[in-house]
Amino acid sequence: MIKLGIIGFGRIGRVHAESIMNYVKDAEVKAVADPYINEEGEKAALELGIENVYKDHKKIIDDPEIEAVLVCSSTDTHSQMSIEAAEAGKDIFCEKPIDKNLDKIEEVLNVVEKAGVKFQVGFNRRFDHNFQAVKENVENGKIGDVHLINITSRDPEAPPIDYVKGSGGMFLDMTIHDFDMVRFLSGSEVEEVYAAGEVLVNPEIGEVGDIDTAVITLKLKNGAIAVINNSREAVYGYDQRAEVFGSKGG
Rank of each mutant, 00 (worst) to 15 (best):
G89N: 11
F119V: 02
P97N: 08
F127G: 06
E113F: 12
K96I: 03
P97T: 10
D91A: 12
K100V: 12
G89A: 13
A115R: 04
F93P: 03
K100M: 09
V117A: 02
Q120C: 03
E107F: 05
I98G: 01
H129S: 09
F119K: 00
D91Y: 09
H129L: 14
P97F: 05
K104H: 07
V112C: 00
I92W: 03
I92H: 03
K90N: 07
S82L: 06
K114Q: 14
C94M: 03
P97H: 10
S82K: 11
S79F: 14
D99M: 04
R125V: 03
F119D: 01
G116M: 08
G122N: 10
A85H: 06
D99R: 11
F93Q: 10
V111K: 11
A86R: 09
D99E: 14
I98A: 03
E113T: 11
N110Y: 12
K90V: 02
A85G: 07
K104V: 09
D99I: 02
V111L: 07
N110E: 15
K90L: 02
R125I: 01
G122E: 02
D91M: 11
I98C: 02
E113S: 14
N124R: 05
D128F: 07
L102H: 12
F123I: 03
A85V: 02
L109T: 09
I98V: 15
H78A: 13
L109H: 13
D91T: 01
N124K: 00
F119S: 02
A85S: 10
H129A: 12
D103F: 13
I92G: 05
E87Y: 08
V111C: 04
D91P: 01
K118F: 07
D103V: 07
F127Y: 15
L109G: 08
E107M: 13
K96W: 04
F119G: 01
D91G: 02
G89W: 10
H78M: 07
F123V: 07
F123D: 00
E113R: 15
A86P: 11
D103G: 14
V112D: 01
G122I: 02
G89Q: 14
A85P: 01
R126T: 01
L109Q: 14
F127S: 08
R125K: 09
E84I: 12
V111T: 15
I83W: 09
F127D: 10
K114F: 08
I83A: 10
G89E: 11
E84A: 13
C94A: 13
F93A: 11
M81N: 12
E95L: 05
K114P: 04
G89H: 11
V121S: 00
E106T: 08
C94L: 04
K96M: 03
M81W: 04
V111G: 02
S82V: 06
K90D: 04
D103Y: 09
K100H: 08
G122L: 02
F119W: 06
N110W: 11
A85T: 06
D128Y: 06
F93V: 15
V117W: 01
E106P: 00
N124I: 06
F93S: 10
Q120F: 07
K90C: 02
Q80S: 10
G116E: 01
N101R: 14
E87Q: 15
V111N: 04
G116S: 04
D99Q: 07
E113A: 14
F127I: 10
